[in-house]
Design a protein around this nucleic acid. Structure first.
Lengths: 235, 235
DNA sequence: GGCCGGCTTCGCCCCCGAACGAAGGACAGC
DNA sequence: GCTGTCCTTCGTTCGGGGGCGAAGCCGGCC
């Protein structure tokens, strides 16, 4: 295990309200500019710049400059998973008041770039149960049947294979069972959003940088996913 | 998702070197007194008292006084899992120097009260693969074959059922696949340690509060687990 | 009762780090 | 080139919080 000092400095990096807001905003998978992140965190540009420098230096965030903008995104799926898990722990550990959208978030949401919540877990179970993916070195591989079935759903398998990992487990904090991450998870989520099988629910009330991550299964999506995978009972 | 402020205060709670050392020490599953934790964290009693009060107030740690001692332990498996994951992220995110015992930790270790590392993941896979456990509400249940097999290994199933959860997944940071937590995971680890199928490796070099968590499969353990589950190839 | 040991509370000091204003590069478009 | 925009660096202020010593509380023990 990591030495306490290194562990603490990493946790402290996430333990500032402004940085936490930035990390949660980046959890959506989008790459955001320093200015956008400053606005989200509610601080001035100089402060945001300093915070982002520390996040980059700490290995949590990657930056790629583009013209006069500097786009920031989370450094890896591992970082996203840790933030996701810590967010889940926050909700279980402080039951003081009901979290807004708690139930909706449990139904379906984005975890970094892939699907999470009951839908994400159901998807994982369906892919395994139908023999579309099988255990492989470091995660999962698509079977022959899986290649056909996923292609039939419109998933871009070559794109999924170009990712660092094709498919691997990511623990779902609300369901306590794994859902699917990696290139395949990303492509499935992207496909569902692109084809409007899933809609993003707009945040209600005052700005919660993460409200927009809640998802809703559309009738078309329920039909297609139900047909192919047997996933139909999502509210 | 949690509001950034709540998320940040939780992360900040773990983001102090002294508190991080305490949490990592408690990750062993033992309940420790305030004095022991003060010594582990390398601070005075007053400071430790203040830190522990904050950890308790934050819901990460539970206290139960016993005579003039006050025993502290982690509040839940969720807390342990989050600490475990953050520790894993620390090692992947700061590749500056090799972590001591990194490879040994990947082979077999304790995560809170259950087995983790290659051994823990292999165990999880073996139980599923042999049909000894099957998916159930909120985790896994033992099948008829599983009850017989686990009892044959010497696992105390009634004790496992008394836990809040019988069996559920816990993400393994080094293998990125789930291992087994819950009452069953705890009983399996306890049984393996009790019967000396697994030995704790003593920490080498200067005090790392977690060094003792590394485990080694003994010849007897390899034989018994290999016979029953097909787990034999651990260094 | 008197003592001791474990733990907490109080009071204080000090330092880290978060925030901002002002100024200084870097890049795009006219 | 000039201007506007985006972002960073510098320098300063200031508040939160971590550390310790001293004192107080409480339970156990002779």
């Amino acid at each position: 295990m990591a030495t306490p000092a290194a562990f603490a400095s990493l946790a402290a990096l996430m333990g500032d309200p402004a940085r936490a807001a930035m990390l949660q905003a980046l959890l959506s998978g989008e790459a955001l500019t320093a200015g956008e992140l400053a606005r989200i965190a509610g601080i001035g540009a100089p402060s945001a710049s300093a915070h982002l420098a520390r996040l980059v230096e700490g290995g949590l965030v990657l930056v790629h400059p583009q013209g006069r903008h500097r786009y920031h995104r989370l450094a890896s799926e591992e970082v996203a998973a840790a933030i996701e898990m810590l967010g889940g722990l926050t909700m279980t550990v402080t039951p003081a008041r009901r979290w807004p959208h708690g139930e909706a978030l449990r139904t379906a949401r984005l975890c970094y770039d892939h699907l999470a919540g009951r839908l994400g877990v159901a998807l994982h179970g369906a892919l395994v149960g139908r023999g579309w993916i099988a255990p492989a070195e470091g995660g999962w591989a698509a079977t022959t049947a899986g290649e056909a079935g996923l292609a039939g759903l419109g998933i871009d398998l070559p794109a999924a294979r170009r990712a660092r990992r094709f498919a691997c487990d990511c623990m779902d904090w609300s369901e306590r069972r794994p859902h699917l991450a990696g290139g395949l998870g990303r492509e499935i989520a992207a496909c569902c959003l692109r084809r409007h099988w899933l809609g993003r629910l707009p945040p209600e009330g005052p700005a919660d940088p993460l409200g927009r991550r809640r998802l809703r299964l559309t009738p078309e999506g329920a039909r297609r996913l139900g047909e192919s995978l047997g996933i139909n009972a999502l509210p």
